[in-house]
Amino acid sequence: MSNLLDLLVAGLATGAIYALVAVGFTLLWQTSQTINFAQGEFVMLPAFLMLAVMHVGAPFWLAILIGILLSLLLLGLGFKLLLVDPMLRHGVLPLAIATMALAIGMKEAVKQFFSAEASPFPSIVPAGDVSILGRVVSLQSLGVLALAIAVVIGLTMLLNRTSIGHQMQATAQNPTVARIIGVPVERMILMTFLINAFLVALASLLITPIYLAKFSSGEVLGQAAFIAAIVGGFNQVRGAIAGGLLIGVVDNLAAAYVSTQYRAAVPLILLIVIILFRPQGLLGRPEERTV
């Protein structure tokens, strides 16, 4: 039982990070039909941007700030203007393939400019432990979980309780009608790209101290978040959150109670089951499209 508690805490902490990345998937899909297969690399890059800033002597807090700003610029604005806008008019598939190419390009560029070796990355959560229900739990796990949940709650409030959030939702549901009633659709779409950039930068900040900064570290994360988004519901933010947490927990339980070798297969099996029996995802809504 105590082991189960440890696994749940660790799984939720990892799952919360998956959720941040998965939310980005759903936001981009809802507002611009973009499936970003470079999302994992989007998580990898901000850590290297922060390391580069620290390398020139800046303190960690400043590196975080500049890293987030650069992420907004490159992974938000730059991604939309230079890749999504020109490619989207050719359809969803060419854009998806273009993001795959982007993923390879980002990995190789980081390998070229930094190194193929892993680098350490400082943690924003201090080291130490606390006792919960008689179990020793690390502050890092709790900090990651708390911060990720706070961001998810903040995002949900932004979407549901503010005018901008309502306009973004209107853009996601029907951009034509939204435009007619005066919603600045283009600005709202850009906003989702910037939010996605912020989320991946935050995920990078939280996960890199654990996974280490490495050019290939986005592969696992991107795949996990993609599965999480589909399992939870690709067209619902709350679905992505639930999917992220679920995949994090399932992955940890599978590693402990099934086997390490098959741990990667368990979320995929879950994905297949969801697609067969509830294609819209656990919390997603069915979508009908005309051809």
Partner: peptide
């Protein structure tokens, strides 16, 4: 007796097994 994978990023479950 805990087997892990090359390139594995997350060791939380493995360490939980050690703890148990």
């Amino acid at each position: 007796d805990i087997s892990t994978e090359a390139g594995q990023a997350d060791f939380a479950a493995d360490v939980s097994k050690i703890k148990a």
